[in-house]
Design a protein around this nucleic acid. Sequence first.
DNA 1: AGGGTTTTTT
Length: 801
Amino acid sequence: MSNGNDRWSALKGDSQGSDGGRRYGGYSKQYNRKGYGSRQSSGSESRYNSWDRYQVKTEDGEVLRGSQGSSDRRYSNRVIETKPRWSRFSDNQKDRAARGDEPQVLRKDLDVGDGKGELNPFTGRSFSRNYYRLLELRKKLPIYNHRDEVLKIVGENKFVVLVGDTGSGKTTQVPQILSMKYGKENNKLIACTQPRRIAAVTVAQRVAEEMDVRLGDEVGYSIRYEDETSSRTILKYCTDGLLLRESVTDPLFSKYSMIIIDEAHERTISTDILMGMLKQVVFEREDFRLVVMSATLDAEKLQKYFNNAPLISIPGRMYPVEIKYLEEPVEDYLQATIEAISQIHKEEPAGDILVFLNGEDEISTAVKDLEESLGSVPGEGHPSGVHVLPLFSSLPSNAIQKVFEDPPKNKRKIVIATNVAETSITIDGIVYVVDPGFSKQKVYNPRNRVESLQVAPVSAASAVQRSGRAGRTRAGVTYRLYTEDAFEGLTAMTYPEILRSNLNSVVLQLRTLSMNPVEFDFLDPPPPETVMRALECLLYLGALDQTGQVTKFGKAMSVFPLDPELSRTLLAAPELGVAQEVLAIVAMVSAAPNCFVRPLNKAREADQAKRRFEAEESDHLTLLNVYTEYMIHNNSSQQWCWENFLNERALQSAAKAKEQLERLLEQQGYSTKSKRIGFDYYGQSIAIRKAIAQGNFMFSAVECKRATYLTTKDNVEVKLHPSSGVRTRPTWLIYNELVITTKAFIRTVTQVEGGWLLESSPNYFTPDHFTNDIVSYEIAKLTGERKKSRSAMNTNLRQAY
DNA sequence: AGGGTTTTTT
């Protein structure tokens, strides 16, 4: 593809895919070097020696062998079988059959419908033409020839780890195969988790079609706000977060005979917690199995975690993707990106380009640059120039839609995207990927507990995922704008979310289930301070008592899909007579965090539009105003949102969240009606802000200098974020978020009275609790003032009598 | 007086 004269060095033997090239060279080396799940030759041998080995009979052995890297051989063409000591089975006929003690009856289950004229066992009708069409496609998936092995190994073990790369078919086929056999067992169903809502829905749709049943009957899905399942359902796709929530009411997951965790390598908090819980469930329930599916990377780590579970490895199937590295590193990746695109457009054959950049402004600049420089410059196979499109998640839906559409005739489509295009959004037809190797990542500083976003090199896993985007519909090329050495030096995996997040909500949930978060069996244990901080926070919120037991109030808090701070705010609202208002605010804060749109070229208009909603004493009230107005304009919402620079999708989800929260609040026996009688505007504003103070007193700040605040929790000197509409210059504030960009800013703030904070948590607000003199002084002033006023009252009383 | 938000999810 390249002429050899340019600065790309095609790496020999580094093409990938079904043609047998080594998959994304450098991986195994990376592992060993970093020691992440590394396999030291001495140690690993002895570990494997004690295991029985099981050779997979594969019809496509060529592909398997070809896809092996030198040190990866153990993984893909062999299944390691173990019989862990703890594995106990009810000795019924099915299990014996699965173990191979009895004649295999599995094939009959499996091949149901394979011959023409057979009836669909679920509907009793003959299979549709579409069924047979899809069946032909399914037969081409790498997983198809491994059906027996999947059934056999899963039949014999209660933990199984299954790894397979892109295109193996694992997400659609494995749950399907297993549900044919186990789907009706004891009237229980199978759940398969996905990290994203769209994935859960689209995969369920696809599998229902493949099984020739109606979506919501035998195959369904369940995500927040949407439940497409019924009593007939035997296979349910759902988000990992939703299944985790279910544990609150059903800690043993007794509805399910088997749970399949998919995309475990993404390591979302929910997946991590679920894996820990389900590991326990396997020990406690004889009739339960767990299958964990993942990309090949962390297989060994997962196996170890699940008591040396057997591993099934399925090769991926992709079109080959050639990887090109730079011979010399570049200084300016943005510049290099533009140059690379220009070169591809002019010299490489027809095909669309996907480019990964880091944020709205970088993307906008690049889009503009490219439109200007290449807009009508003819390139190979695209005589009319290029058609450049931005892609990031806060883009309005119609702009996102454009990315999937064909470009104008004879133009080359170039999509400039953030990491949405890495996993969430899949664009077919991409032939070239340009990857500068960076992304914006959330970084957590445990010292001052501040999160910030930083541009950092991606992990090798991300780089691989990005290149894979080029080989979906035909052979492609990835241009990595860094050297091969740099690739070798990348961290293998993205740091798991659970290690860089606050765990307040998780710890409350674990305590509600009487589990000890300190002893919880995490795949990667979070720093102990994180857990201690969570316990401490829950104590101050009144969710736990001094002994660490969940209080009645804490139990009520745990019911809401919210951070504990927000749950408490919500629970405080009915008594203050502002349930409706606080429901809306909490919904906005939790489900529509970025509802204000501010395009760079219309920043002024956007700010002006926002000003119309602003309340001078509280950004939270501003959010309430937005919500209220949105609901009034609900039937013309699209245009209204557009005119007011609001993100419609965000507001829609806030509206749904509010509905759900209202229902939950009602179920707890609270009145969700607001008391409007006796309130003037200020009375109402005060009541709402008091509710906010009750939950968020730990996110308080006090003025220490002119226009400068000090956070009470960690003594960080902060400024109000310029996007805040609060103009009253209050002494005390509640903030929703602390961000560090050019300075430390607090965002979404609300003026409160010190006294309200004191009332919210007298234990928290004692002068000696705080190390900073200014904070202590201000608090002493408050407690002093309170004493003074109390004694003043006494004097009044004395005088009265 | 003054400025940047990767991405998910209950």
